[in-house]
Computed example of a mutant assay.
Amino acid sequence: MNKFSLAKAIYDISNIKGEFVLRSGVVATEYFDKYLFEANPIILRSIVEKLKILLPTNYDQLAGLEMGGIPIATALSLETGSHTLFVRKKAKQYGTCKLAEGGDINGQRLVIIEDVVTSGGAIIDAVNELRNRGAIVETVLCVIDREGTGRKNLEAINLSFKPLFTQSELKCAVEL
C-alpha cells in the first residue's frame, strides 16, 4: 500500500465525528479511533513498513506506550527484529514495580512508539519517568500528529518527533 492509499485507509477506518474529550482536556469534534486501524492487519502492516523508514540509525529498543503504542511497537519489532518494551502509564505498585516491561532500560537508547499525539502529555510523562530510571530517549514516532501542541511540547524536552502522518495529510488524502 503506498503512503497516499494508507492515509486514506487510516482516515476511512478510524475517523469519527462527534464530541470527544481528549486526554489533554481539549474537546474535539473529530476523533481517530486508533484501535480500529491497529486491529486491521493489512493497515497495521503497512503502517509499520512506513514507520520503519523513520527509525533513527542508532537505538537499542523500541518502547510502546500503553496502550495504543504497544500493538504498533510489537508489529514494528516483528518487521525490524528490534527488541520491544511495553511502557506502563504508571509503574506497577506490586511485584516487580516496573514502568517498562520486557527488559532493562538503564543506559538503553529507546525509541518511543505512540499512536496519536495531540499535546504529547502522555509521552512527556513516560519519557520523564524513563529518563529518571536511566533510559536515553531522543526520538518519538507516531502514526498521527493531530497538529496540536505535541510537536512543540516534545521538542521542548529535546525529543525528535517523527509522525507518519499529520491530521491535515489524512484529510487531504480523503479530499482528493
Rank of each mutant, 00 (worst) to 15 (best):
D125N: 14
K3I: 12
C142M: 04
D104N: 13
S160T: 13
N128A: 11
I72S: 03
E30T: 13
Y59E: 00
N132S: 15
F20K: 03
F165S: 07
A73H: 03
G64D: 05
V26F: 13
R146Q: 04
Y35T: 12
S24C: 07
G148H: 04
V143R: 01
E175A: 14
E49T: 10
V26I: 14
L164Q: 10
L130V: 08
I136T: 11
N132H: 10
E175Q: 15
L65R: 00
P56V: 06
L159P: 00
A156P: 00
K17F: 10
L154P: 06
D60Y: 08
K50P: 02
E114Y: 04
E175L: 14
D104M: 10
Q108F: 04
Q167K: 15
I10R: 02
K17D: 10
E175I: 10
V87T: 03
L51H: 07
D104V: 12
L141A: 09
V21W: 00
P41L: 09
N15K: 15
N15G: 00
T80F: 05
R45S: 15
G69S: 09
I43R: 01
F32P: 02
V116N: 01
E169Q: 14
A100E: 00
G102K: 04
S160Q: 14
A100Y: 03
E101V: 09
S168E: 11
D60A: 02
R109Q: 13
T57I: 11
V48R: 01
Y59K: 03
G18M: 06
I113C: 06
G69K: 03
C142S: 14
G121C: 05
S14R: 05
G107F: 02
I16H: 07
L6W: 02
L164P: 12
I105W: 00
F161G: 05
S160R: 14
P41C: 08
I136K: 13
I157Q: 09
E49S: 12
G103S: 07
G64Y: 02
S46M: 05
I43Q: 05
S14L: 05
L36M: 11
A135C: 07
D12P: 01
K98Y: 08
Q61F: 09
E79W: 06
N106L: 10
L176M: 12
L65F: 06
I53K: 13
F4M: 10
T166I: 01
N106Y: 11
L110D: 02
